[in-house]
Amino acid sequence: MEKDRTILLVVSTPPICIQISGFFCGSFVRISQKVLLQEVIEHPLPALVTKPEIPCYFIMGDYDHMTFSHAAREFFDQLEAKQKEFIAFDQSAHYPQFEEKEKFFEWVSETFL
């Protein structure tokens, strides 16, 4: 029997948890960031998603300064989901799928294959 492939993969957190700094460069990134932040402020994910009926996976890098682990953990803890998992990558920042690709591939293989 084939597994259900519908999941919720959280990649953002409440706006108060996003750090804006001079790190971003280029007008496109600044414009995109402004639009995305406005969307997050107007429609915070924790207010929109409270009781998902699909598996939820939070994939976080411990050194991520764009999406803080403690804020993601707060969101994760308040979710009422039958199946949820918080996966922390201890050698990664914002892109654990690239920074710890072997560990990420292993997790994906064990979880979905």
Rank of each mutant, 00 (worst) to 15 (best):
A88S: 14
E2I: 08
Q38I: 00
F23V: 06
W107G: 04
L48P: 03
F58P: 00
A72K: 01
C17Q: 04
S12E: 14
E80M: 04
E110Q: 14
Y57W: 06
K3N: 12
V29M: 08
F76H: 08
E106N: 12
D90M: 07
P15R: 01
S109L: 09
F105V: 06
V35N: 06
E39F: 07
A88V: 06
T13E: 08
S27M: 05
F76G: 02
R30Y: 13
S109V: 11
E53V: 00
T50M: 13
T111A: 09
S12D: 14
F89D: 01
M66N: 11
M66I: 10
Q19R: 12
R5G: 03
I18M: 05
I20W: 06
F98M: 12
K3I: 07
D90P: 13
E85Q: 11
G61P: 04
G22M: 14
F28V: 10
F24Q: 11
A88Q: 11
L79M: 09
L79V: 05
I7W: 13
I54S: 02
G26L: 08
H65P: 00
E2W: 10
V10I: 13
I59W: 03
I59S: 00
S12H: 12
E2V: 12
S27T: 03
L48S: 03
R30I: 10
K103Q: 14
V49L: 12
P15S: 07
